[in-house]
Computed example of a mutant assay.
Amino acid sequence: MTFALIQQTPAAGPPGWTQFVFIGGMALMFYFLLIRPQSKARKEMEARLSKLKAGDEVILTSGLYATIDRVEDKHIWLKLGGSVVKARRTAVASLAAEPESQN
């Protein structure tokens, strides 16, 4: 019995452009799942901080509740109990009257 050796050409892989399509798709997913929502949330927070006014009750990033006494350029004066303290605007996490989102 004789076996004929059949010479086969090596199978060609996928074309080179498919790698670029895959990498491009991954970049788009990364943008829409991570970068875009984060920048949207940052813009919303900046808009909220720009609307702060005296008399608003806020929650600080430390978890304390305070009432705004007066607002300056980058700082706010807060009433905490019987004291008035100075803090940066960025220390405000949210307005106390806002409903908290369920994540």
Rank of each mutant, 00 (worst) to 15 (best):
V58L: 12
S101D: 10
K86N: 15
S39D: 06
V58A: 10
S83R: 04
I23E: 01
L64D: 14
E98D: 14
M1V: 14
G82M: 10
F30H: 03
E57Y: 04
K79T: 13
G25W: 01
F22E: 09
D73L: 07
K43M: 04
L78N: 12
A27Y: 07
A97L: 04
I68T: 07
R48G: 10
D69A: 14
A41W: 00
R36L: 09
A97F: 03
L49N: 09
R48H: 13
Q8H: 11
A41N: 00
D69C: 11
R89Y: 11
I59T: 09
A47N: 14
R36D: 01
R42W: 03
V58I: 15
M1H: 13
R42M: 02
G82A: 14
M26P: 02
I23Y: 01
W77H: 14
R89M: 11
R48Y: 08
Q7V: 08
W17I: 09
V21K: 01
Q102T: 07
D73G: 09
W77K: 11
A87R: 06
D56H: 12
R70V: 15
S50K: 03
A93R: 10
L80I: 08
G81Q: 05
T9H: 11
I76G: 14
V92R: 01
L52N: 07
A96S: 07
I6K: 00
M45V: 05
R70F: 15
A27T: 15
A12V: 07
E100Q: 07
F22K: 03
W17C: 03
T18R: 03
R88G: 15
P15C: 05
H75K: 10
M26D: 00
M26A: 14
M29Q: 00
G82N: 14
I59P: 05
K51Y: 05
E57L: 06
L95V: 03
N103G: 07
S62L: 11
A4L: 10
L34W: 02
M29R: 00
K51A: 12
R42F: 02
L78P: 06
S50I: 04
T61D: 09
G63C: 15
T90W: 01
P10K: 08
V92E: 10
S94T: 12
V85A: 13
I23T: 08
Y31H: 01
V84M: 08
V21L: 13
R42P: 01
I68K: 07
V84G: 04
E57V: 07
T67A: 15
F3D: 11
E46S: 11
L64P: 00
G25L: 04
L80C: 04
R88D: 15
Y31T: 02
F20K: 09
G24F: 00
G63E: 15
E100P: 05
G55R: 05
G82Q: 12
I59K: 07
S101G: 04
A4H: 08
M29T: 05
L52G: 06
I76D: 13
A27N: 03
R70H: 15
Q102M: 05
K86P: 09
T61A: 05
F3T: 12
G55H: 07
L49V: 13
I35G: 01
F30S: 03
Q19D: 10
P99A: 10
A11S: 14
